[in-house]
Each structure stands twice: as structure tokens, then as C-alpha cells.
């Protein structure tokens, strides 16, 4: 079921969707979006690419093992929660930098946490779908 049109479209769509997913993640704290939605968009982009060009190529493009992605995401989320402990605050207290970073806006531990969520959603979804397609 390889289709030339799909293959060509996927090649264009992947970077656009991927950028969109990052955009959703970053703006999620203020407007609709966030780690869950962003992760799902990114996953959809790679799955689309995988269907068009084969999972092998999609994996190669991703470079990282999907399960590592999932693990890194979990650790990142956990770390963002543990960070305040070093400052004597309670687990998962939100810490923010005073000055906003250009483009990304204000940075703080909740943003790191949301990035962790993004990676877990991306990793888990791709683990499921890639392996199913290959099976």
C-alpha cells in the first residue's frame, strides 16, 4: 500500500507537524496545547512517515530508541519535581527563572515537567505503533 503521493506528502508534513508539536508544547502553559497534545502530534507525524516510508526509515529519522525516549521523559518529569527539594522546598514546587527567555518565554520547572510528559507520550505511542507495524 505504498503510495507515491502519501510518500511525498509525508516527507513534507513530518517537519511541519514536528515543529507544530514543539509549538504546542511551548505555548501550552498559556493557550490550548501542552505536553500531551504536543506529544500526540509528534507521534502522529512519525507514524505517518512510518506508514509512508516504512518503520525502519522512521526509526532512523528519530535516531533514538522509542523506549529510551519514554524513559528519558519519565526521568525528566521526576527530576523537575525533585529539583525544588535541593532548595528546601516541597516536592514539585514550581520554580521559575526571573527573566523571560526570548521565543520560549518564561522558563521554570513546570515547563521541564511538561517536556517530560511530551517525551513520554511520544515514546509510548511510538513504541506501541512501530512495534505493531513491524510485528
Amino acid at each position: 500500500m505504498r503510495s507515491l503521493i502519501l510518500a511525498a506528502t509525508a516527507r513534507f508534513l513530518l517537519p511541519i507537524l514536528f515543529m507544530f508539536s514543539i509549538f504546542l508544547l511551548v505555548r501550552g502553559h498559556h493557550l490550548p496545547g501542552g505536553g500531551f497534545v504536543g506529544g500526540l502530534v509528534a507521534a502522529a507525524a512519525f507514524v505517518l512517515y512510518g506508514i509512508a516510508h516504512g518503520v525502519e526509515e522512521a526509526r532512523a529519522l528519530l535516531r533514538v530508541n522509542t523506549i529510551s525516549l519514554l524513559g528519558v521523559g519519565l526521568l525528566l518529569a521526576l527530576a523537575s519535581g525533585l529539583l525544588p527539594l535541593a532548595g528546601g522546598e516541597a516536592f514539585m514546587t514550581g520554580l521559575w527563572f526571573q527573566h523571560p527567555v526570548p521565543v520560549l518565554g518564561k522558563l521554570g520547572t513546570p515547563v521541564i515537567f511538561d517536556t517530560g510528559v511530551y517525551l513520554v507520550v511520544l515514546g509510548a505511542t511510538l513504541t506501541v505503533l512501530f512495534n505493531l507495524v513491524e510485528d
Binding site: 519535581g81 514539585m92 515537567f113
Partner: peptide
Amino acid sequence: KGHNIVNVILVDFRGFDTLGEI
């Protein structure tokens, strides 16, 4: 420091729940 209340609940107020969910 977030305008989107749903997202703030997820990543901050009830972040521990979200950690469990992921």
C-alpha cells in the same frame, strides 16, 4: 505563572497525579 488553567493543573497544581499517569 500560566494562563491556561487546565495545563497549570496538569503540570503544577496536580503535577504529582500527572507523574503517576505518565
